[in-house]
Amino acid sequence: MAETQPLRGPFRVPSAADRPPKQVVRLNVNGHAREVAVRPSDVLLDTLRDDLGLTGTTRGCDMGTCGCCTVHVDGRPVLSCLTLTLLAEGAEIRTIEDVAPAGTDLHPVQRAFAQHGGSQCGFCTPGFIMTSVALLARRPDPSDEEIRREISGNMCRCTGYNKIVESVRVAAAELRGEEVASVASPGDLDVPRGAYDKPAGAYRSNGHGGGKSR
């Protein structure tokens, strides 16, 4: 018996022409007004990544289960894969790209994740950071249990979560103004800024020239 695919069911994907037209919407993203043309069925994740080039927000499942796509809408972390773009009109949208303060500084939460093993492959990391930043804005001193509950909509396959919890804990302390130890020894070399064209020392005339030769 020969069968033709699909077996059954009207799974027709409408071609682009059959779809409702795009409409221009004004979004407030990371403090700036952005105009984009979107379809009513577009979700915020696609708009951010494809239309606004904000690829820091990642797509792990597209179905609400991994939290990779977490962004803030009016200060609350939500899943951009389950948010219609048109319904985000009028709200303040904030993505991972806007978490760090100006320049190359990192937000304490970002720094803690980077330093305390809260990020391995990094694909889940923007989502965790958005969730954690929002949590700490609300609850400056959460217990470990509370941190675990709050991040339980974000999935990480690399870290096993414990170092994420630790990262959030460390960030919380820093945000509360407590002294936080750095993991890495800072120690960089003391070298002049700019180009360095000539040795600083004149070694042979330095008193220890002419050492033993072999």
């Binding site: 904000l54 820091g56 970002q110 330093q115 305390h116 391995q120 950071i129 993991v183």
Partner: peptide
């Protein structure tokens, strides 16, 4: 030494 991953900063900033 305990050394954080060198690509950490790019991962935590979404870059």
């Amino acid at each position: 030494q305990r050394v954080p991953l060198i690509d950490g900063p790019s991962k935590v900033t979404g870059t």
